[in-house]
Write a protein that binds this DNA or RNA. Structure first.
Length: 266
DNA sequence: GCGACAG
DNA sequence: ATCTTGTCGC
């Protein structure tokens, strides 16, 4: 039988993925390709997309894949597509896209088929993989540092985090290969934990960071946050479980209604 | 002493 | 990813 090294994935599949990744990497465009990306306030940008998968509690295979499209700069949901899917591939660090991207690509295709006018001009929530497959500008967004190419959440890293004082502050993630793999970004004034913005497709890292910041009402960029919320909600409604947890009317601090746009537009 | 590693 | 309440701070 085939030996299984990573997460129960046969070596044969793993080497297939490695080759596929190398081919995709060669096709990545890591610079700005759209006019609006050069604009100080991204004028011309009207729609941003977000993707996410939420998983069924006791199930390692079933999940809900969600694609949402938000208006920009209002960040209001214009479109959502939630699809219950069955995952065939286990999670392997470094190969996340092979597990999740097929369903997101399908969702994007459904959008192109049914409502082409709502196709987003930029996508959040996955790195370059989906960008290559859809030919759309995409940005990678993670809540935790992917420890690869020598990147480590060590003392030095945490020290640099301390130096991020205001929303929009960032520092580069330099791998051992002397390649900048992404940026740690303080996405909001009231958020200590940085966001990890990785090199995507058809957008420069600098623009990716600026755009991500401008889409953050909270720590997580609104497109991804809405995809996350709506994918979980879809699971709850579909596989009906306990009643909807009514969010107690907590006192809400004075939050800027439209994220960090003020700073961006200043 | 355990386990560290995007989701 | 998911299991989970209250609690601290603005």
């Amino acid at each position: 039988m085939a030996e299984e090294a990573e997460g129960g994935v046969p070596e044969e599949i793993l080497s297939l993925w490695e080759r596929e990744q190398a081919q995709l990497k060669a096709r990545v465009v890591d610079r700005d390709t759209e006019e609006w990306q050069r604009e100080p306030a991204f004028s011309g940008l009207r729609r941003v997309g977000g993707v996410d998968l939420s998983f069924v509690k006791g199930d390692c295979a079933r999940a809900c894949a969600s694609l949402v499209v938000l208006s920009y700069p209002e960040l209001e949901v214009l479109y959502e597509d939630n699809q219950l899917v069955s995952l065939s591939t286990p999670y392997v660090p470094g190969f996340l896209a092979f597990r999740e991207v097929p369903f997101l690509r399908d969702a994007m295709q459904r959008l192109r088929d049914t409502k082409p006018s709502l196709v987003p001009q930029a996508g959040f929530g996955v790195a370059c993989h989906l960008g290559i497959l859809t030919d759309l500008p995409c940005i990678g967004v993670a809540k935790k540092l992917l420890q690869v190419d020598g990147l480590e959440n060590n003392a030095l890293h945490r020290e640099r985090m301390q130096l991020l004082h205001a929303g929009g502050d960032s520092f580069p993630l330099m791998g051992e290969s002397r390649t900048v793999l992404g940026m740690a970004l303080r996405s909001h004034d009231r958020s200590t934990n940085p966001l990890y913005v990785s090199v995507g497709h058809k957008v420069s890292l600098q623009t990716a960071v600026r755009l991500t910041h401008s889409c953050c009402r909270f720590r997580i960029p609104e497109p991804v946050r809405q995809a996350d919320i709506r994918s979980r909600e879809h699971i709850r409604r579909t596989l009906g479980l306990p009643a909807a947890p009514e969010p107690a009317p907590k006192r809400s601090q004075k939050v800027h209604p439209k994220g960090n746009l003020e700073e961006t537009l200043d």
